[in-house]
Amino acid sequence: MIKNIVHFNVQQIADSGQCFRMNNIGNNSYSLVAFNKYLEIEQLDKNQVVFRCEDEDFETLWADYFDLNYDYGNVVHSIHNSEDDFLKKAVEYGEGIRILKQDLWETIVSFIISQRKSIPAIKSTIEKLCMKFGEKKSFEGKVYYTFPSPEVIAEQSMEGLQGLALGYRDKYILNTAKTIANGEVNLELIKQMSREDAILELKKLSGVGEKVANCVALYGMHKIDAFPVDVWIKRVVDTYYGGFFDTNTYKGFNGIVQQYMFYYMKNKYKS
């Protein structure tokens, strides 16, 4: 189906560092596996996007997953009317980015894996994890693997996680899976918490510190005022804001601002 969507760019979303199972398949098209479903999405022009999926899945899953009901135009307008020259340039460069509403468990594992890894390496490791422990499914002849549940991972041994390029993160993922599977940390309750309380609860999980917890809050719970600080955002703050960025300036959508900053800075200084 073809949808007309303003402030939506598939390539920018795929390359914004928030999702690791969205892959370029050529001709402005990307595949995506999320919530045990498969999607192909193609950018026809600036505002026209094709979603190749069941009509019901678009209405019940993908429209919400891509945050299509949020007014990103209002965010863009607010920034353009500010005096923040750097952020204006960042928005012009990546105004098609949206904050995805991803599965909380998958986001936790993905960002534990992400520590000290390049994006291609993260994607490769996650795919290996899914192929080994996920469920094999198909959509219109396309084979894909679902993301394994915490219960499935919790049943594994350290030896069982070898060969996935997890490195030192294997114990973090196994311990976190067990903590969630046995109910010590309840993901459904975390979803209902405030951003501050959710971050505190997430930090009880093995391998989850301040930065990962903020990433999970933003990308896995849509707490769009979360402001994760990684090496790229630190470079932005140090270079353009004198070492301090006042999040009160963009209160209510700091996470969206962070994505514009990250995408622009990472592409401006490709390495």
Rank of each mutant, 00 (worst) to 15 (best):
R169L: 12
Y264K: 08
K136M: 07
E127Y: 04
K136N: 04
N267S: 03
L129E: 10
D230I: 08
E127Q: 14
E159L: 06
I190T: 02
V208W: 11
E196F: 01
G243C: 05
A165M: 08
V216M: 09
N254S: 03
Q156C: 12
V152E: 06
I180Q: 09
I153W: 00
K223V: 07
L202M: 08
I180R: 02
G220V: 00
K132I: 05
K128S: 14
G242C: 09
N214H: 14
F245M: 01
D197T: 04
S157I: 13
I233S: 06
I224Q: 10
K211Q: 06
K203M: 15
F245Y: 14
K137L: 13
T247K: 15
L200S: 12
K132R: 15
V237D: 02
I256Y: 04
E155Q: 13
D225F: 01
V229G: 08
D225Y: 03
A165E: 11
I180K: 04
G255K: 04
K132L: 08
K223I: 06
N267C: 00
I224N: 14
K137D: 07
I126A: 04
I180Y: 06
V185K: 10
V231I: 13
K204N: 12
C130F: 04
V237T: 14
E196N: 10
T179S: 15
E127V: 04
K178H: 02
E159W: 00
K211E: 13
E155M: 08
I190L: 15
M221P: 01
N175C: 03
E127G: 10
L187C: 11
E151A: 12
K142E: 14
G242L: 07
G252Y: 07
G163N: 08
F133G: 12
L218A: 02
G141Y: 00
T239W: 08
V236G: 05
K178R: 15
K268H: 07
G163D: 03
A217H: 06
K234G: 14
F147P: 05
G243Q: 03
V231T: 13
N182F: 06
F253K: 06
L161Y: 07
A154H: 02
F245C: 02
I233M: 14
V237M: 10
G255D: 09
L129F: 15
T176M: 11
A213R: 02
F147W: 02
N186T: 01
L202H: 11
I224D: 14
N186G: 00
N175G: 14
D246T: 03
K211P: 06
Q162H: 05
Q156P: 02
Q162T: 15
E196V: 14
K191F: 12
E135N: 11
Y260P: 07
T179Y: 01
I190R: 08
Y219L: 11
E201T: 15
K132Y: 01
I224W: 02
